[in-house]
């Protein structure tokens, strides 16, 4: 198990940062990838955002004051990078964020890295209808099995607010999945 304080100190030290960065990337790459992938949906986009996230972490580690956990800070950067990426993409395409979400889900049908069946595709369609915050809370809780306290630190929202968002998201998704096509 990695001791965060030690890793952060090594990342800030010019003599040890290269090795520490490798340790950091290898320790968090999968968790951050899946977090990003569930926001941007496409593998290549997720890879792009993941790399940018790690580079940003590396460049800004001196600004990390240890007020939150390192992984919370990295998740926050990953979330911001993902949402910024989507905003830029919708702007480039000249469509709204909602239209982009629908396009991304449509693209999943021909995506070689999406192996979901009809139900899983419908789940993505349901998620695309949710407000951004509800979608984030749902995926972090349901798929990444994070605790409310952890999500609270990353999204800077109260636990009570997160529980309400999650509950609403579950109801909406269930209603979408069980409703008529």
């Amino acid at each position: 198990m990695i001791v965060e304080e030690t890793l952060v100190a090594e990342l800030k030290d010019k003599h040890t940062q290269a090795k520490a960065f490798e340790v950091l990337v290898n320790a968090y790459k999968e968790r951050l990838y899946w977090h990003i992938r569930r926001i941007v949906l496409d593998h290549d986009d997720a890879d792009d955002v993941l790399q940018n996230t790690f580079i940003k972490v590396y460049r800004n580690i001196d600004g990390f004051k240890g007020e939150s956990k390192l992984y919370s800070w990295m998740y926050r950067i990953a979330t911001n990078e993902s949402l910024t990426f989507l905003n830029q993409k919708s702007k480039k395409l000249g469509i709204t964020n909602q239209e982009l979400q629908e396009t991304l889900v449509e693209n999943l049908e021909s995506d070689v890295y999406f192996e979901g069946d009809a139900i899983q595709l419908k789940l993505q369609k349901a998620l695309a209808t949710l407000p951004e915050k509800q979608k984030l809370v749902f995926t972090m809780k349901y798929f990444q099995e994070m605790k409310y306290e952890e999500i609270s630190e990353i999204l800077e929202t109260s636990v009570g607010g997160l529980k309400a968002s999650y509950h609403l998201a579950v109801k909406k998704i269930e209603s979408y999945l069980t409703g008529a096509d």
Partner: peptide, 25 residues
Amino acid sequence: QSSSIPKNDGFAVPDGYFENVYSSV
């Protein structure tokens, strides 16, 4: 209660993708 929501969302990654993340970065 959550039976209508699948526990797996169906996303996949290319073979060996995670092994190469560090070198790509």
